[in-house]
Computed example of a mutant assay.
Amino acid sequence: MSPAQLRPYRPEDLDALYDICLRTGHHGGDATGLYRDRRLLGHVYAAPYAALEPALAFVAEDREGVCGYILGTADTEDFHRRCETAWWPPLRRQYPLPDPADESDTAHLLRRLHAGAPVELPFLGSHPAHLHIDLLPRAQGLGLGRGLMQCFVAALRERGVPGVHLGVSALNPRAIAFYERCGFATLQQRVWGRWMGLALGAGAAPPDAGPLAGPPAR
């Protein structure tokens, strides 16, 4: 297995972000066969963070290239406003809403693109930041996910952010276990999965630095 390093995101990493997002986008597994457009998933879950919050983007890179990332924002509500101004409008023109009868994965994602990110969440006051983290199979089980999480959390703490949240599918129990090992707790249970959060205020413990036993994923 090639050694890997963690580093800040660079603009030339963008294509890798799109690729990783797609190859981990089905409950942590490969979503390549689910979407007609290979960049659509990344348009929603990866590229806007690289474009609008590059200082909070970190990647794992081995000898084969970028193999994982963590992306997010320090302020979900502000990020939503900036996306509505600078990110979603051209994509909504490029990708019209699908037929209401279309229940494909592509159609559901297009409806999400037109709806924008959810911001009416009761825990945003205490957990205003949010994140996405994904690793390709070759990078899983090496501690890179925990290392990326530590980079991201340290950057949030430098900004004085009180907490961070994320959404995770009920069909991805390995991701749930990973987040729990990093100190995340369930904030809200939903039919599709759960919202989880990590408090970052004074006295809050940092993510556990122990060995990673499972792959982090959406």
Rank of each mutant, 00 (worst) to 15 (best):
L109A: 10
L124T: 11
A86I: 08
E61Q: 12
P118L: 10
F58I: 02
A50T: 01
E61A: 03
G65P: 02
R92G: 10
L52R: 05
C83H: 04
D75S: 11
E103D: 13
L124K: 08
T73I: 01
D78T: 13
L56H: 12
A117K: 14
P96A: 13
L56I: 06
A86K: 12
E64D: 14
H108N: 08
D102W: 05
R63G: 14
L97R: 13
G65E: 02
R111T: 00
T76D: 06
L71W: 02
E77W: 03
L97T: 07
L110W: 07
L56V: 03
L124F: 08
R111E: 03
A115S: 13
G65S: 06
L109K: 02
G116L: 01
G116N: 10
A51F: 13
P54H: 10
H108D: 14
Q94I: 01
I70F: 10
L124D: 12
R112L: 15
C83F: 01
P96Q: 09
A60Q: 06
A107D: 07
T106Q: 15
E77I: 13
G72V: 01
T106H: 12
L110C: 07
H80N: 12
E53A: 07
V66L: 11
R93I: 09
D78S: 14
L56Q: 03
L71I: 06
T85V: 15
D105P: 09
F79Q: 04
F123D: 09
A86Y: 14
A51S: 12
C83Q: 12
T85N: 11
A74T: 06
P122V: 00
W88G: 00
W87Q: 02
P90E: 06
G68L: 08
E84G: 09
V59E: 04
W88N: 00
A55R: 13
G116Y: 00
L91Q: 08
Q94A: 15
C83Y: 00
L71P: 02
L110A: 02
R81N: 07
P100T: 06
A86H: 13
P118S: 07
F123R: 03
Y69D: 07
R92Y: 06
L52P: 05
H108Q: 15
R93G: 14
F123L: 11
H108V: 15
A55F: 04
R92A: 06
A74V: 01
L71A: 05
V119Y: 09
T106N: 12
F123T: 04
L121T: 09
